[in-house]
């Protein structure tokens, strides 16, 4: 999964796509994931990072990441 390169992430959770002019809001964990993606982390690395940082379990993270990535695709925030 590659995030659009020029996507602007703000620490407030505000996300702006300069190519389309769309803006989005993410919650703090969503922002963490976007930042990890932006730094070129793989899905496995992100999964591990979330498990280290949050009180959760493998299955939940797997399900939720799948859903979140699908949303990123749907919102056209990933490189095709």
């Amino acid at each position: 999964m590659n995030l659009l390169k020029n996507l602007a992430l703000s620490d407030t959770g505000f996300v702006f796509n300069p190519a389309t002019g769309d803006s989005f809001s993410v919650n703090p964990i969503g922002l963490d994931i976007l930042k990890l993606l932006k730094n070129g982390k793989s899905e496995n690395e992100i999964r591990k990072s979330l498990l280290d940082a949050y009180q959760t379990d493998k299955e939940t993270v797997e399900k939720d990441l799948y859903d979140f990535f699908k949303m990123l695709e749907q919102l056209k925030l990933t490189e095709q």
């Binding site: 989005f24 993410v26 919650n27 964990i29 969503g30 949050y54 009180q55 959760t56 979140f68 919102l75």
Partner: peptide, 16 residues
């Protein structure tokens, strides 16, 4: 151990 970690919440993204 796990109590030191942050509370988990499903990641959300929404178009404004």
């Amino acid at each position: 151990m796990s109590n030191k970690k942050a509370l988990y919440e499903r990641p959300l993204i929404q178009r404004i």
